[in-house]
Design a binder for these strands. Structure first.
Length: 282
DNA sequence: AAGTATATCAACCGCATAGCC
DNA sequence: CGGCTATGCGGTTGATATACT
């Protein structure tokens, strides 16, 4: 071949045992990529195009598996990759798409141009799952999904709207459902806890509070459609009509609240802190 | 300043699927 | 149809960076 034969591009690892004798004996290098390897791979893919990764690996003179080359290209070398922090819009989109598709990372990534499935997966694991852990609930639990839907996502939308004049785009890559509208975010669940259930929260919040001392759980009876007076969008993402409980009065047991309150507040504060850190870092 | 804990992210692994022979 | 290979996907790991004590 031409531009990237081993004779022309002789990477350092061929002479220096970067990754250990055993791997070299096995004939395949693993571990972090060097700049030289990147250059070899980049040149080869530029010339021959994506695909046939095993051939690319050998044509480039890389002692790597095709799989490894593909991953490096897709996650790092691809020219159309978008670098930098995940934006608020992207965060919102990830949350929304994950709630719809679950861990279909590659599918979600298709809706975020320039982002890789790996990147999104990492974002989810580090940022989102961490919150679930803090809330002591499973990331797939209804409790956490509701927290995302009714607290986190509305907050994100709020921030996006306040920081941009452009309308928020949701479901950017599909048309199978109209843009989601969420209950107004300024009426978050924690405002209600410990107080009567009336007033600003009359649409109800799907939430679950655990009583700290007894670990008893109270899963809000405002959840879902069965509530009298409540109608919910079939997609589960839009409360289309306000509802009330017991005539708008819902008293919480004495002494309850704090944990649920703090959980939600922390959820928001943590993200706010993180966001500010990102802004400062940029 | 040193040690430890935690967060982040690149890379690997195993499995599933598609396509070819 | 069955076997083989390449590719793609999601889960997991491990190295490094950063924060905390």
């Amino acid at each position: 071949m031409g531009a990237c034969t081993p004779s022309q591009f002789s990477p350092s690892w061929m002479s220096d045992d970067v990754c250990g004798e055993e791997d070299q004996l096995l004939g395949v290098k693993k571990g972090p990529w060097t700049e030289e390897e990147d250059a070899l791979l980049f040149n080869c893919v530029t010339v021959y195009g994506e695909g046939r990764w095993n051939s690319i690996a050998s044509l480039a003179g890389l002692n790597r598996t095709g799989k490894s080359c593909r991953l490096r290209w897709l996650n790092y070398l691809r020219p159309d990759l978008r670098r930098g922090n995940i934006t608020l819009q992207e965060q919102l989109l990830i949350l929304e798409l994950h709630s719809r598709w679950g861990s279909r990372w590659s599918k979600i990534a298709q809706c975020l141009p320039g982002r890789t499935d790996n990147e999104i997966k990492n974002y989810w694991r580090t940022r989102v799952q961490k919150q679930a852990k803090k809330m002591k609930c499973d990331v797939n639990s209804k409790q956490f999904r509701d927290a995302m839907r009714f607290v986190w996502m509305p907050r994100l939308r709020e921030r996006i709207e306040s920081s941009s004049t452009e309308p928020i785009k949701t479901s950017a890559c599909t048309t199978d459902r109209p843009a989601v509208s969420y209950p107004t975010p300024n009426q978050a669940a924690y405002q209600v806890v410990g107080k009567s259930w009336s007033g600003s929260m009359d649409w109800g919040i799907c939430w679950e509070i655990t009583e700290p001392s007894s670990s008893l759980s109270y899963s809000g009876d405002t959840q879902g459609a069965p509530l009298a007076g409540a109608t919910w969008d079939p997609s589960g993402s839009c409360c289309t009509e306000s509802s009330s409980i017991n005539g708008g009065q819902r008293s919480w047991p004495e002494g309850w609240i704090d944990e649920g309150d703090l959980m939600l507040e922390n959820l928001w504060n943590d993200e706010k802190t993180w966001f500010l850190q990102q802004q400062l870092g940029e």
